[in-house]
């Protein structure tokens, strides 16, 4: 006899309406999701839950993601839906990889902080570097510094303009002068001319 009551009955509940309702929150920051965006986010959420072997009833984590990340200074109307989708996927991945050792709110706060401060709005960095650091940190617990402290440290010494222009001896190099820029242009032009000549020979 087929079971009437199984997890499969619960698994795929669309949450488009709940996502759209959060426009009331994000509108304050000039960010709005369309019905199409909401549908796509709902599908991405379902896929991510399936990929990470999780069950969630209701909107859950995406509510917290939208409420936090809509405040970000690195998010605009063009990349809003994309960032929400990627962070959602990363969130469920980390929850599964860390065996639910961390609460939703703690993880969301940490992801937002890292996105703003360490990644400066780079989703790629958040997904690749920060995601893995977080997983190691959560799984290692109090042993984190001992096991991973050195290798996971991020060089933030060049995150200001002055530091970015400081050379190995500590001297702050000036910005490119007009003379330097002209020299660079000449070099680029001559390189192009040399390579065009080679391409013609190959043809």
């Amino acid at each position: 006899m087929n079971a009437l009551i199984t997890l499969e009955n619960f698994a795929l509940q669309p949450v488009d309406d709940k996502i759209l309702a959060l426009n009331e929150v994000s509108r304050e920051y000039g960010l709005v999701l369309t019905a199409e965006d909401a549908k796509e986010l709902s599908e991405i959420r379902e896929r991510s839950l399936k990929d990470n072997e999780r069950l969630e009833i209701g909107l859950g984590a995406m509510d917290g993601i939208i409420r936090r990340f809509s405040r970000s200074s690195f998010i605009n109307q063009e990349n809003y839906a994309y960032v929400i989708a990627e962070v959602t996927d990363l969130f469920y991945y980390i929850k599964t990889e860390t065996d639910d050792k961390v609460s939703d709110n703690e993880l969301l706060d940490e992801l937002y902080l890292r996105f703003e401060q360490r990644c400066r709005g780079s989703v790629d960095l958040l997904l690749s570097r920060e995601g893995e650091i977080l997983i190691r940190k959560i799984n290692a617990g109090e042993n984190y510094e001992k096991w991973f402290g050195a290798s996971d440290s991020v060089d933030t010494s060049r995150d200001t303009d002055i530091n970015a222009r400081r050379d190995d001896s500590g001297v702050v190099m000036p910005y490119l002068t007009d003379e330097d820029r002209n020299l660079v242009k000449e070099l680029e032009q001559s390189w192009r001319e040399e390579n065009e000549g080679e391409d013609e020979d190959n043809d």
């Binding site: 997890l7 839950l49 072997e53 999780r54 069950l55 969630e56 009833i57 209701g58 859950g60 984590a61 469920y92 929850k95 599964t96 065996d99 639910d100 609460s103 939703d104 709110n105």
Partner: peptide, 12 residues
């Protein structure tokens, strides 16, 4: 109430 999602084996 610290998590809105659980692993499938736990949910089962």
């Amino acid at each position: 109430n610290e998590s809105t999602s659980v692993r499938l084996d736990k949910a089962n």
